[in-house]
Amino acid sequence: MTLLELDDVHTYYGQSHILQGVDLSVEEGEVVALLGRNGVGKTTTFRSILQLTPPRQGSIQFKGEELVGKDTYEVADAGIGWIPEDRRMFSRLSVEENVRASVPGDASEAEALELAYETFPILGERADQRAGDLSGGQQQMLAIARGLVGGNDLLLVDEPSEGLAPKIVTDVGEALLAASESLPILLVEQKLGLALDLADRFYVMDHGTIVDSGKTSEVSVDDERLRRYLSA
C-alpha cells in the first residue's frame, strides 16, 4: 500500500522555482533513497512534505490524506518524523527534555524515554546534560531517537552521516537499519554506499525533478547510470 505519494509538486522560494514537478512515492515497509547533487531540491522536497515550505501546486498524500494546506504540526501529528540535516537539537534543553518535547500529546513520556535510552544507551547516561554539549554522533543519535519516539509512521532522514567520523557513520547506519525494521524511511544521503545499503529503492533528482528511479539491487556505487547525476 502506498504510504506517501507526491504528485507534480511545485515549490518556490520567493521567485525561485525549486521543485518543478516532483513525483515520488514510498510504500509501507520500505526504505527509499533520494539521491542527487547539492542544491537539486532534496531538502526542499522534505520541507514541502512537512509544509514548512508549502508547495504552490501539486498534491502530497500521506495514508490517503492530503497534506498540502495543513499546518506543520498537523503533518507531524499525522505520523511524519523529520531528522533534519543539521540535527536541529534544542541545544539548551537537556537530552531528556529533547526526547520529551517529541512525544505526542496522548503518548506516555516514560515509555518514550525508555525506548530512546534502550536504543541509544549513551543518551540515558547523558539524560541531564544539555543537548548542545553532546558530540556530533550523539546529537545524531538524539535526532534519530526523537524520530523514533514521535509515534511516527514514516521518517524523513536528511544527510545523517554529514560531518561524522567514519566509525560513527557505521553506528548511525546501524541505528537507521534497526529503525527501518519497524519504520519506512525516505532518506537523503550523500554517501552513496550507505544510501544503497539502507534503501530498497532510489530516486535521482536533478534541477528540481525526478530524472531516474529504480531498485537499489539494480545499481552499484560505480554505476554510470548514477554517476552522471551525482558527480560534481
Binding site: 514548512l52 506543520t72 504540526y73 501529528d77 523529520w82 533534519p84 534544542f90 539548551r92 505526542p104
Partner: peptide, 12 residues
C-alpha cells in the same frame, strides 16, 4: 530555540 523544529515535532 527553534520554532520550526518544534512545529515539525508536532508542537502547535
Amino acid at each position: 530555540e527553534d520554532d520550526e523544529m518544534a512545529r515539525a515535532l508536532g508542537i502547535n
